[in-house]
Design a protein around this nucleic acid. Sequence first.
DNA 1: CGTTTGATTGACCCCACTCAAACGTGGTGG
DNA 2: CCACCACGTTTGAGTGGGGTCAATCAAACG
Lengths: 256, 256
Amino acid sequence: MTDVNKPQLVTFERLKVSCGQCNLNELCFPHGMNPEDMSQLDAVVEQRKPLQKNDHLYREGDASRAIYAVRSGSVKTLVESPNGDEQIVGFHLPGELVGVDGFMDGSHTCTAISLETTSVCAIPMNKLENLCTTLPGLQHQMRRIMGKEVTEEHKMLLMLGKMSAEEKIATFLLSISRRMEERHWKATEFVLSMPRQDIANYLGLAVETVSRLFAQYQEAGIIKVDRRRIGILDLHRLKVIVGESEGAKEKKGLKG
Amino acid sequence: MTDVNKPQLVTFERLKVSCGQCNLNELCFPHGMNPEDMSQLDAVVEQRKPLQKNDHLYREGDASRAIYAVRSGSVKTLVESPNGDEQIVGFHLPGELVGVDGFMDGSHTCTAISLETTSVCAIPMNKLENLCTTLPGLQHQMRRIMGKEVTEEHKMLLMLGKMSAEEKIATFLLSISRRMEERHWKATEFVLSMPRQDIANYLGLAVETVSRLFAQYQEAGIIKVDRRRIGILDLHRLKVIVGESEGAKEKKGLKG
DNA sequence: CGTTTGATTGACCCCACTCAAACGTGGTGG
DNA sequence: CCACCACGTTTGAGTGGGGTCAATCAAACG
C-alpha cells in the first residue's frame, strides 16, 4: 500500500494515461462503461502533480471543484467536531474515489490528506455534470458510486456503534486485506500507510489499545506485526472474531 | 413528531397531492426545482397506503424499486452486523428521503421501519432515472441529496467515534430540535417517536445511560422530560455541551 | 551521534455497561 | 370499573473494557 509508489520523477506535462489503459479502471470510476463513453471521460480527466505526504487534497469548506480518483499512494478523509477533535472517516486506496462530500452545496464537508506520496486523477465537477447529461451510462455510474459510499459508511457506523475493540481491529484488518486482493496485491501481507494514531482515530480507540491488540493478535498467532508491515497468518480466525465465519456462533475472545 | 399525524381515514384511490402544493416541498426532493420540472416529477410520484407502526418499508436485500419521501410520521433505518445485532443509522422525519442505499447495486443495504403510522411518497427508480436524463435540474438535485446523505453520515461517525455519552445526547436533542424548526414546528417542545431503546442503539449507548442522562439534564434544568415528550429549557447549555457555543471552550460537565 | 517521532508496555482509573429490581402506563378482558 | 399483564422506562449497585498517564524503546533523520 505504500511502497507500491514508484518515485514519480517524470515531468508532468504529458504523462496522461487514458482510463482505458489504466490498470485500475476495473475498480475505478469508468468500471463497466462502454469504450465510446470512456473516451469521452478520458477527455475531461486531469492528471495532477503528485501530493507529498501530509499534503491536503482539499480542506473542509473548500469549493468542490472536482472529484478525485487515487492513482497511487493513499489518502485519508476526516471531519472536525465543533470542539476541535477530528474523526477520520475513510482511508482511500488506488482506484477509489475521494470528494463526493461537497455534492450537497458545492463545498467540501471534510478534509482529504495524503498519507504518503500520492497521485490522483481529477474529474472537474462542471465537466462531469455536462458529461452526465449526455451519457446516461455515466450518470448511472455516479449513482452506483454514491450508493457505495453510503453503504460503506453504514458499515462504519455499525463498527463504531456496536463493536468491541477486538472486533474493530479484526474488521479493519479484513477490510484492508480484501481491498488489497481487489487490487491483485497480496491479501495476507501488506504495509499500512497510516500511523497507529490514525488507525486508532478511525476506529474510535486509543493508540495504546490498537498497539495492545496488534500485540495480542500476534501473540495468538493470527497476525505478524513488524512496525507497519502486517502479515495475516490466520484469516479464518479473524473472520470468526467479526462473526463472518459460521462454525462458532458464540462470541469468542482470543484464547478460542 | 408523532401526534402530528392526522388519522388517515380517507380512501387512497385518489389522495394524490402534487409536489407543488405539498407543504413539505421546501424540505423535500423538489426543493429548488422550477415549476415545469416539478410537474414532470409530480407525474411519477406515487402515493402509498400508510404504514402501521413497525411495518417494514423495505428490508436489507430487497430490490431497490423506489426512493421514498416521508410525508407524515417517521421512519428508522438500520443495518445488521454479521453476528446479529443491529445499528440504527438514521431517523427520518417528514420531508426527508429514505432509500438512497440501494443505489450501489440495485438492492437495499439497510432496512427501513416505520416508528409510528407513517405515509410516504414513492418515486420509482426506473422513472426517476429516465427523468434525470431529460431534466438536468433533477439530476443536480439528486446529487445534492446524496451529498447531504454522505455529509450527515460523516457527522454521525464523528458522534459515535469521538463523543462522550453526554455529548451524544445533547447532539441528538439539538438535531431533533433543529429539524423540528425546519418543519415550522416548535423547536423546544416535541414528542419523540422512538423508544429509548432506539435512541440508545442509534447513539451507541445502553438504554440505561440514555435514561440517566435525560434525568440528569432535567435535574440540571436543561430539559423537561415527560416520557417521550421533551421540552428544551436551555438551548444554549446544550450547545455549550457539544462545543457549538463559544464562551466556554473548556470542556464542562453538567454542574457548569 | 543527539534528536525527534512513532510504537510499545505497564499501572491505574473512570465512564459507561451489565445485572437486577421497581415503577408507571396502556391495553385487555372479566 | 377494576384486576391483570406486558412493555417501556427508571433507578441503584457493582464491574470491567478501554481510556489516561507516564516511561521506555526503536527507527528515521538531520
